[in-house]
Nucleic acid binder design. Sequence first.
RNA 1: GCUGGAGUAGCUCAGUCGGUAGAGCAGCCGCCUCGUAAGCGGCAGGUCAGGGGUUCGAGUCCCCUCUCCAGCUCCA
Length: 677
Amino acid sequence: MRHGDASVDLEPGATAIQALKALDAIRGQIVAARVRVADHAPVAWDLDRPLPDVTAEALHLDTIAADTDEGRAILRHSTAHLMAQAVTDLFPGAKWAIGPPIEDGFYYDFDVERPFTPEDLEAIEARMQVLAKERQRFVREVVAREDALEEFADQPYKVQIIELVDDGTIVSAVDVGGDDASGLQAPDGPTFTVYRNVRVGADGTDEVAWSDLCRGPHVPSVDRIPAFTLLRSAGAYWRGREDQPMLQRIYGTAWESRKALQAHLDMVEEAKKRDHRKLGRELELLHHPDELGPGLSIFLPNGAIVRKQMEDWIRDETIARGYQPVYTPHIAKEDLWRISGHLENYAELMYPGMEVENASYRLKPMNCPFHILAFTSRTRSYRELPVRIAELGTVYRYERSGVVNGMLRARGFTQDDSHIFCRDDQVVDEVAACVEFARDLYRTFGLGEPSRVAVSTRPDKSIAGHDDTWEAAEQALIDAVEKTGLAYVIDEGEGAFYGPKIDIHARDAIGREWQLTTVQVDFNLPERFDITYVGEDGAKHRPYMVHRALFGSIERFFAVMVESFNGAFPTWLAPVQVKVVPVAADFLGYADEVGDVLRARGLRVEVDASDATLGNKIRAAQTSKTPYTLVVGANEVDARTVAVRPYHGDQRKDVPLDAFVSEVADEVAERRTPAHG
RNA sequence: GCUGGAGUAGCUCAGUCGGUAGAGCAGCCGCCUCGUAAGCGGCAGGUCAGGGGUUCGAGUCCCCUCUCCAGCUCCA
């Protein structure tokens, strides 16, 4: 068998680890092997599992290191088993559902008598530490369907999983192994894989401590998990469906080293410190009084300045790119929402009607119907297409109470919304332009390139459009993304009910990914509103309609900015750009003069006229994360200079006032955006 | 909507066994006039989320409601 260029011959029945040792292929910490037979897809393989019985030339072998995404997933999967074993020990009668690795950790769902308490988690983790020391081995066994059913007869969820596999509901969503996943051996009838945790008993013989239905692979033994911890518990529906019973889920994480685990926990802690709700309060950006109601917020003056910079940028850019701004109301008669189909498809997300003068009015959950009315305000010619209607439209959605979450998920929010009416031959260019527009936006606001571009295809619940229409639109979106040169993935069945879409994500300063931009094709509304334009042939034609929001929600994007910049906005966005601090009251006159000079160049300045000590005033300026603090005293008055203390970077003394003003004015004019921090 | 946790001054938090509410910061007043992250003193600030109950007595125990947080489901 081969590993890279090396090859070696082995006895039949040799395990992956034996082969890797023979090949001298082990570097660093290995959790599993990767086996590829001929041109089959590679399969992750337990180190102690015998290699497939094929010719040496056909077999390729590689290692899976602990410090890779794939390696960590295996560590975490094994840790999930360890946790389930601990839960079984401490909570006899607990039923196990599923326990997969996820991004940054793992979970396992249990059906237990009562929900887990924080104390339970401590006890479970302590039990896991004890079990880990037992050096239990993970032993893989392939069993027949009937044997699996018998073995797990008292585990109703496992039985269900087996039955779901029977009827094809589950293929790979839940990892149960089964037919040799490598496709290397044709099994005799349906089989499942069981992993047994085996320890050496008091009498020196092997004893099975715990078993689970599982695809694997796993680390060879539980003591090979370098670092793990449990994080929290929460309810979770069986199979993720609301009509199913609620189980108790425990989240945990595992890493290749104590250091890596600590780094992860530090990152979580850092994210907590940056929470936009916390910073929004501390920096007086936002206010969420109970009197307002859930999911609604007030932008305080500081927050409003930041938001205005965002809005000014997008307004200017949309006009520059040929969009036509409109303004539309926040409510409309119910009839409009009947025509648009929102009452039919979206009613549970709409606030109830307001009865006025024998008519019912509704708050708008979307801007589209209004933009359509703007389009249909007169007869449209093919010559004027594409027509791009744009608005910062504030919408209201009656989100279910449990999902409201700061500004990330609000009940009232503002979309930088636009609807583009165009001919079919213009769709690709228009969509590509939207994607490029979004890239500019991310660059401007310091988010770099998109981290993920996903084209979502027709969902089961789609109501509009023929198959070939959907296919054509999906292809148009793909063509548009390819035109931009960005890599993309296909999210099957994740499109909106009225058409396919492109979602764009970006990563913030601490590596978190946010869904921001959405570009959607709509087949539904043009039909419902019977939108037409007059073509070259004098006949009426139906335009395509593209929805698009680049920030997505201004409020959400604002929150992402707050968290990503950690409240320390770049100068062009900062609520107060410069604070002038006189050393003592005697120098207040010069401080005011400096303030006036800066304001005359359009900068946002505050002069600290309080009678606090210098140290106190500087501290106040620093904790407000103001980009520049200027200290002025006798030296500065005489030389007409300022002592500059930037929020990021080293202080500079004796900077000529004029030079500082030009420097900052340029920085703002260029919207210079350093890396987030 | 569901599961769990939490709500005390503007903010961060203490409050013991059920015995009549406390600190720091911020605010206001005064003193200090200061060279790079907290000078000193004083004053004011509370329907302990709201409602009901138990009790001689409830921030504390019980019930209901609201809001927030961590998830599930749903989504910008």
